[in-house]
């Protein structure tokens, strides 16, 4: 399994043809206390760069974009019930949704951990 990153501060954990998507620890630290998360419906067809979920802090709302084209195959209901998970465990427990990858070539150009670290430095 590989983890890749977008310039919009989403992470992608790739497991075969399914990718799990969340926002990075850097992103949560910039957002502050998360109080609401809205997730896409399972079965929704997402296009790359389309707004797929919403994450809201006390202060503001931000979109989470689909990093890749595909169908939503699972969403994290535990996160919707406890949005503060984004702040406490952005990299793991606070995953947002899983997409079945339509076109693997869209993964090209995403950053690896070192490149993402440089991106946020």
């Amino acid at each position: 399994m590989t983890t890749l990153y977008t310039e919009d501060h989403e992470w992608l954990l790739i497991d075969g043809d399914v990718v799990t998507v969340g926002i990075t620890d850097y992103a949560q630290s910039q957002l502050g206390d998360v109080v609401f998360v809205e997730l896409p419906k399972v079965g929704r067809a997402l296009k790359k760069a389309e707004a797929a979920a919403v994450v809201e802090s006390v202060k503001a709302a931000s979109d989470v974009y689909a990093p890749i084209t595909g169908e939503v195959v699972a969403v994290n209901d535990a996160l919707a019930a406890e949005p503060a998970l984004v702040n406490s465990d952005a990299d793991s427990k606070a995953w947002f949704f899983k997409i079945k990858i339509a076109d693997k070539s869209e993964l090209e150009g995403l950053m690896d951990a070192d490149a993402y670290k440089a991106h946020t430095a």
């Binding site: 502050g32 206390d33 109080v35 802090s57 006390v58 202060k59």
Partner: peptide, 12 residues
């Protein structure tokens, strides 16, 4: 300052 390290929720 929009917030400190404490964070908006705890500051409130």
């Amino acid at each position: 300052p929009v917030q400190y390290a404490t964070g908006v929720l705890k500051e409130h």
